[in-house]
Amino acid sequence: MTVSAAPEAALSVLPRADGSAKYSHAGYTITASVNGPIEAQRRDEHPYEAHVDVVVRPAAGVGGTRERHLESVLQSSLTQIILVKNFPRALIQIVLQIESTPGNDYVNTKLFQASLNFSIMPALFQTAVLALLSAAVPMRATATASVVAVVSQDKEKKLIVDPSAREIEAAQSVHVLAFTSHDELLLAESEGDFSVKEWDDVYETAKKICCQPESQKAGIEMVPDDDNARGPDMRQFLRSTLEEKVAADLHWK
């Protein structure tokens, strides 16, 4: 199976939802819909702020504890960037439907206990942010996320951005980091054993991917990057996706 390295995204793909996005990157394809602000149920109603409800639905099988875990992580980090105080007693409903995950030809997976792992988190996160933008939900900042694995190769530690399923199996630790557009660290989840030094390296790598400074982009006419660990520039990607969408929408002007 070929895995496209460059992320792809489309905004407002669903006609009836308030906002929606479809995002595919590193073999993951996810469709998200956002409805909101809508009336919250009594049990979710919060008197001072909007409740952010995240539902992660696997392509096959019913969601289990892993999906609930992903939901809770996404919910708490998205609550941070959405201006929830603007919509007291309301609900912002985000549904993330996983359409495909990178296949692993060497393992027969147990499909019914749909098991998700860490590496899907950036894709989910990115789709959610895109869908929120498409729904025009007011946000404090946009955010970008990335996953980095630490693999030991010949006694040397190596960082792999967007690792494949096999690389994750072999990895010592996997880290998911998300940054806001103000270069603040929004989310850091790690799995496996690692040293503080390694984490610092991971942090730097992820930050490079997520928060490439705007000025550098404008100044140095997109120098072709052959540094592999660098990966795609997520912020630029987010920006260009939105620019394209706005340009298409305002074409008639």
Binding site: R16, T31, V55, R57, V95
Partner: peptide
């Protein structure tokens, strides 16, 4: 056959 309609189709 599992059919579960999510809020994606309609809130």
């Amino acid at each position: 056959i599992a059919t579960e309609l999510s809020p994606m189709a309609s809130p």
